[in-house]
Amino acid sequence: MKIDFSFLSKYHEALLMGLGTTLQLTVICFGLALVLGFVLALLRGSRIKPVAWAAMLYVEFFRGTPVLVQLFWIFYCLPIFLGTELSNFTSAVVCLSLYGGATMSESFRSGLKSIGREQYDAAHALGLTPWVRTVHVLLPQAVLRAVPVLLSNGVGLFKESALISAVGMAELMFIGSTISNRTARPVEVFTAIALIYFIVAFPLTRLVAVLERRILRRLAI
């Protein structure tokens, strides 16, 4: 069999549309997951034990089960519970955001943990109130330190979003499979799909690495 990628040019609009959907999904879920992750990280540090445990259980559960299982659960079970149909897009957003929130909360937490004891000492010695200490000293440092990991998580969401194809939403992977079925040329199609994911994800990971070095240099004390 001869490998020839040229036939793909016929499908470039469909592929771009698929990529558009994938990116849209990623960006929306990234935003929601950031918020959810931050709230979860705060709840896990709560002094009210049941609250902290509930948040921990949530995080462990979403990190301890396959995203695909979560996806199927939300697609097939959530509508039954809610008693209404959910659009594919909504279900996909719910799934990736809930999962993303769990990973993000871990990143925020390790950012908080990485702040040394001296910072607490200095804050005490300057008589900073708990509020000022949290908002002006701890939080900015935690967030800065977490930024690279949070962005990596975002790239992770971009990749995980390929799973959504399994429930028939027309994102990049699904469109790829459809083209492959129609043309019976899986080698070219799936290689191209892989390359598209790579072309988006790789520069982002490089960017994250550069950013990480810069932030660490800034925060080096």
Binding site: K159, A162, A166, M173, P186, V187, F190, A194, Y197, A201
Partner: peptide
């Protein structure tokens, strides 16, 4: 390449290609 593409794409690629 393995880190920057979805695992699903990798698995499918292996199976078909």
């Amino acid at each position: 390449f393995f880190r920057c593409t979805p695992v699903l794409v990798q698995v499918i690629w292996f199976f078909y290609c």
